[in-house]
Nucleic acid binder design. Structure first.
Length: 296
DNA sequence: AAAAGGAACAACCGCAGTTTT
DNA sequence: TAAAACTGCGGTTGTTCCTTT
């Protein structure tokens, strides 16, 4: 990593001594020398300065914070660095299948409202979710040669990938239960329970909505509602298995199992009404697409 | 081992809404 | 009350890392 000059960390942290006065009489913006502002990747030293300053003084008032901390950065840059990278409550590592499922569900409801979606994934930032969507989800849309916003692609997500994610979560829970016999409660039921909790967190009212298209701010995880259009899935294809609205419950998880199996058997690739795409590039069968999806 | 290409992540930009002076 | 400053959001771009050839 590109480190700044030869300054020691301790000397850099000494900026603290003068910050209180700085807060009381911040340098007017007109006094700033914009040409002096740094851009590009943050250095370790800059991170330390910012973390140290925020630890002492708290966050907010980013422009004066940047000046008083002695950072040659814009307030916006400092804020972004803190929120997306330095915040102690950030969650690191791969997006879990549970989180993927939640992102798909919430995006189907709210679209590109990344910050709103991020509020429901503790420790994840809107930027992270946005990047995830662009790199993973849009990649699959591209591979399937359909628009990511098309009903066709949404239906594929809802009726193919999301049930598969549920299966994956359940499989993971089962395998971890086998690894630890004392954790035998981590079975299908507990996986279902996890989703119920998730649903409760998202929709704290006592009654879980059982309809689609609910108002914007109250959400529940409703994976198994019927398609809103037939653009992708024909009546003949899924009508036999999805006849009613479903809110999430244990029954739905079990339904998901049986449904995705029956869907697979009922729907040949052509039944999906997908445009012709290069199957060779996606592997030997359709499910290989999901392997890409599920892989980290 | 090196180059090329793609994926993933980090950071910036412009704009709109909100708060402060 | 109006202007200036600040904050937050979504889109886009740049950089780094990893994989493939």
């Amino acid at each position: 990593m590109d480190l700044m000059g030869s300054e020691t960390i301790s000397s850099l942290l000494e900026v603290d001594g003068s910050t209180d006065a700085c807060f009381k009489s911040p340098t007017p913006p007109s006094m700033e020398d914009d040409s002096d502002l740094r851009r590009g990747p943050w250095t370790v030293e800059e991170d330390l300065i910012l973390m140290n300053y925020i630890t002492t003084h708290g966050e907010g008032r980013w422009n004066s914070l940047a000046r008083c901390a002695g950072l040659k950065r814009t307030g916006k840059s400092c804020r972004l660095r803190w929120l997306n990278y330095l915040r102690p409550d950030l969650r690191r590592g791969n997006i879990t299948p549970q989180e993927q499922l939640l992102i798909l569900e919430l995006h189907s409801r709210w679209g590109n409202r990344w910050s709103k979606i991020a509020q429901h994934l503790p420790g994840r930032t809107d930027n992270e979710i946005k990047n995830y969507w662009r790199t993973r989800v849009q990649k699959h849309a591209k591979q399937l040669k359909c628009d990511v916003n098309s009903q066709q692609f949404k239906d594929i997500m809802r009726y193919l990938w999301m049930p598969r994610l549920v299966e994956r979560i359940q499989a993971d829970a089962s395998s971890s239960a086998k690894m630890d016999p004392h954790a035998s409660v981590l079975t299908m039921d507990s996986a279902n329970h996890e989703f119920e909790n998730m649903n409760q967190n998202l929709n704290p009212s006592p009654e879980i909505s059982t309809t689609t298209g609910s108002s914007s701010d109250s959400v529940g995880v409703q994976l198994w509602s019927p398609p809103v259009s037939n653009s992708c899935l024909t009546d003949g294809c899924i009508g036999q298995t999805v006849e009613q609205n479903y809110s999430y419950s244990t029954q739905e998880a079990q339904f998901a199992d049986s449904w995705s199996d029956s869907f697979t058997s009922l729907c040949s690739y052509n039944d999906l009404g997908l445009p012709d795409f290069d199957m060779g590039g996606l592997g030997d069968n359709f499910w290989n697409v999901e392997d890409i999806w599920l892989s980290q």
